[in-house]
Amino acid sequence: MNHIAAAMTWLTASSHWTGSGSIGVRIGEHLWYTVLALAVAAIIAVPAGLAIGHTGRGRTIAVACSGALRALPSLGLLTLLAISTTAGIENPIWPSTIVLAILAIPPLLAGSYSGVEAVDDEVTDGARACGMTEMQILGRVELSLAAPLLLGGLRSAALQVVATATICSYLGMGGLGRFILDGLAVSDYPQMLSGAIVIIVLALAIDGLLSLASRILISPGVKHALALTQQ
């Protein structure tokens, strides 16, 4: 209990909210690493998932690749990428982004192809009967109906990346992991606990915002259609 009280004191100290290494700056760095990794992962995973779900081809390979990516140890892979190339040491943002993107790809990929696969065949057949091309069906029909599962995959990916982005600090980068790493170096347990608390609060806040965005972006008609398919 004393450690928690000390952490609260550390968090509320005005000196920790000003300067280049302040809590606000570290949160901004942490969010930047997260957004960058999610963007890279989405560019790779979402188009692939939509194509797999629409055509029905490559699902077995996608599942196998997702399982393999989930099994990779993030810290070990980060260390390997960092020390295997000169660029990894001089510019650690690249190995960090690669590792975090690899972590985000499986849930984004699963959400994409599962969402499209869940669309009723009668809906797509009706769109074809109306003269829509395959790309129009995917973009105008399937993508809208797949939005709930797609956003669910994004939520899962975002939480995993936010929690794991702390490892970026091992390469001398910023982010909230600095409080844990720097505190560990000098046995400053209140600082370490404070960093962990801020990471937890940030993850919960992001999850809440994405949940709210899902409620706003997904139309009632799509929610109703999804509920009917789940019955």
Results as ranks from 00 to 15, higher is better:
Ala51Thr: 15
Ala6His: 12
Arg70Asn: 14
Leu202His: 01
Val186Thr: 15
Leu210Gly: 10
Ser22His: 10
Phe179Asn: 07
Val186Tyr: 14
Ile197Asp: 05
Ala7Leu: 06
Ala7Gly: 09
Gln230Tyr: 02
Thr12Asp: 04
Pro95Met: 04
Ala104Phe: 08
Ser219Phe: 07
Gly24Ala: 07
Met173Cys: 07
Ser211Asn: 05
Ser20Val: 05
Tyr113Gln: 06
Val99Gly: 04
Leu109Pro: 09
Gly152Met: 05
Thr55Pro: 12
Trp17Gln: 03
Gly139Leu: 14
Trp10Gln: 00
Val162His: 09
Ser14Trp: 08
Ile4Phe: 11
Leu103Thr: 08
Ser20Cys: 01
Leu75Cys: 04
Gly195Phe: 02
Tyr33Ser: 12
Leu149Gly: 08
Leu81Gln: 06
Gly49Met: 11
Pro107Cys: 07
Ile52Gln: 02
Asp182Ile: 05
Ser219Met: 06
Val198Pro: 14
Gly24Tyr: 10
Tyr33Asn: 14
Leu50Gly: 08
Asp182Glu: 13
Ala205Ser: 13
Asp121Gly: 04
Leu210Tyr: 07
Ile200Lys: 02
Thr18Gln: 15
Gly56Met: 06
Ala196Cys: 15
Tyr170Leu: 09
Ala104Ser: 11
Ile167Phe: 00
Thr55Ala: 11
Gly28Asp: 01
Cys65Leu: 15
His3Trp: 11
Leu108Tyr: 12
Ile61Tyr: 09
Val162Leu: 15
Pro73Met: 02
Val40Lys: 00
Leu217Ala: 14
Gly67Met: 06
His16Ile: 01
Leu108Arg: 06
Leu81Val: 04
Arg128Glu: 15
Gly221Ile: 10
Ala64Val: 15
Ser84Asn: 08
Ala203Leu: 09
Arg140Thr: 14
Ile52Ser: 00
Ser96Ile: 14
Leu184Asp: 02
Ala225Met: 05
Ala87Ser: 12
Ala5Asp: 12
Pro95Gln: 05
Tyr170Ile: 13
Gly115His: 08
Leu154Asp: 03
Leu151Asp: 08
Leu204Cys: 13
Ala48Lys: 01
Glu134Tyr: 03
Leu11Met: 10
Val63Trp: 07
Ala118Leu: 12
Ile98Met: 03
Ala82Met: 10
Thr164Val: 07
Ile200Met: 12
Cys130Gly: 00
Lys223Tyr: 04
Leu31Asp: 03
Ile199Asp: 01
Gly153Lys: 09
Asp182Thr: 12
Ile61Cys: 12
Ala6Glu: 15
Val198Trp: 07
Leu209Phe: 09
Met1Pro: 07
Arg140Ile: 11
Met192Ser: 10
Thr133Glu: 10
Ile52Arg: 01
Leu226Ile: 08
His54Arg: 07
Gly175Arg: 10
Gly152His: 02
Cys65Phe: 11
Ala51Tyr: 10
Thr166Ala: 12
Arg178Cys: 03
Thr9Ile: 11
Glu142Asn: 05
Val119Thr: 10
Ala64Thr: 13
